[in-house]
């Protein structure tokens, strides 16, 4: 067992039951537990409907579990008020979604700056951080364009920038490459890996794409709302990729078919 101080995220006995008032009840998550250490890059895979998005939403504190707890940096999020949660999300979490989730009314620069603006950081510092990060993400030339005016890959890189700019404890990504072609996917995954390795950003990523998952240091597989398997990356990415494909074949139900 590793030292718990390096443990960024602990989820224990997460159960989520959807449905109320006469509707059919869905048990989307069933007593699922997981832990993530600082600097880890964790992938979550599983068939469609297995509860991946549900899990991520619980980790992101934008939904509350039916039972179980989520602890980030030693703080139990189930004990926090709505207001504390919002503040916690803003300061300690970063998000990347499948549909990029940039605000259309802001330029890429402003989208990336949003967490710092909400934190009332001085404009000079904001500018400096955004530009340094944009350099790293390779989008410095489109910073002053609006999301509509750049490619999906560029939007997603800006979204990644927004997710890490305030140095969160944990970045959560739900199928971040789901809307990207293979070239942009690869470029994006390389950026995530770079952020993970050079800036030591902790990332939890849901994905259907075995190739994207091969960038992770560890991949969890879930099925019917429960943990099914877990594999660690050993030597090369190529070997890891093959390992992932093997588990997916065992898992059945397809990788989601997206």
């Amino acid at each position: 067992m590793r030292d718990t101080t390096t443990r960024v995220l602990i989820a224990q006995g997460l159960t989520k039951i959807y449905g109320s008032r006469g509707r059919a009840v869905t048990r989307a998550l069933n007593n699922l537990s997981l832990a993530v250490d600082r600097g880890e890059f964790v992938g979550i895979m599983g068939p469609s409907g297995s509860g991946k998005t549900t899990l991520l939403n619980l980790l992101a504190t934008i939904d509350r579990p039916t039972s179980g707890t989520v602890t980030v940096e030693g703080r139990d999020t189930s004990r926090m008020s709505e207001r504390e949660l919002a503040l916690f999300r803003r300061k300690r979490l970063g998000f990347v979604f499948q549909d990029f989730n940039l605000l259309d009314s802001l330029t890429l620069r402003e989208n990336m700056a949003l967490p710092l603006v909400l934190d009332r950081q001085p404009p000079s510092l904001i500018r400096q951080r955004v530009e340094a990060l944009a350099q790293r993400l390779g989008i410095q030339h489109v910073l002053d364009r609006f999301p509509d005016e750049v490619s999906g890959g560029e939007q997603q890189r800006a979204a990644a920038g927004r997710a890490v700019i305030h140095e969160p404890a944990l970045v959560l990504a739900d199928e971040p490459t789901g809307n990207l072609d293979s070239r942009s996917s690869q470029a994006f995954m390389e950026i995530l890996r770079d952020l993970n390795e050079s800036l030591n950003v902790t990332i939890v990523m849901v994905t259907h794409d075995p190739f994207a998952a091969s960038y992770c240091s560890r991949v969890l597989f879930i099925r019917d709302g429960a943990l099914y398997n877990e594999i660690h990356r050993g030597d090369g990415r190529q070997a890891f990729f093959q390992q992932i494909l093997d588990v997916l074949a065992l898992l059945g139900g397809g990788s989601g078919g997206h």
Binding site: A60, L87, L103
Partner: peptide
């Protein structure tokens, strides 16, 4: 909603 998800308070 988007802003709320990003942690912008009510």
């Amino acid at each position: 909603r988007r802003l709320s998800d990003l942690g912008v308070g009510r």
